[in-house]
């Protein structure tokens, strides 16, 4: 598992580099998957604001997109969307 194979590759201090996926692909934690209905999305960004996992991005047209690599399926976005533009479906990893 370890990426540092020998002592020579180690830093002298336990310093960690900022990286996405520090806990691996957290999208695999999901049991439910939020799905955005782009026809309904008004681009208010509330779901983006509330997302604890920084798994929602704003696309060019101002609407939101969910990054399923990181989304843990908490469904805050589903619950908070003021226009009910986010559905939830049972996750079935392909």
């Amino acid at each position: 598992m370890s990426k540092l194979k020998t002592i020579k590759e180690y830093p002298l201090i336990p310093a960690s580099k900022p990286s996405e996926g520090a806990a691996g692909r957290t999208g695999l934690w999901r049991t439910f998957r939020p799905v955005v209905n782009l026809d309904k999305c008004i681009g208010c960004r509330l779901c983006w604001f509330y997302c604890p996992d920084n798994a929602i991005t704003i696309s060019g047209d101002g609407k939101v997109e969910i990054n399923y690599d990181w989304c843990k399926g908490c469904l805050i976005c589903f619950h908070e969307c003021p226009v009910k533009a986010i559905d939830r479906v049972v996750e079935e990893f392909g």
Binding site: M1, S2, L4, I7, P14, A15, S16, K17
Partner: peptide, 14 residues
């Protein structure tokens, strides 16, 4: 960088 976040037994020893 983050100094001192969690290191598993795979890393701590060194």
């Amino acid at each position: 960088f983050s100094l001192g976040n969690m290191a598993t037994p795979d890393y701590y020893y060194e």
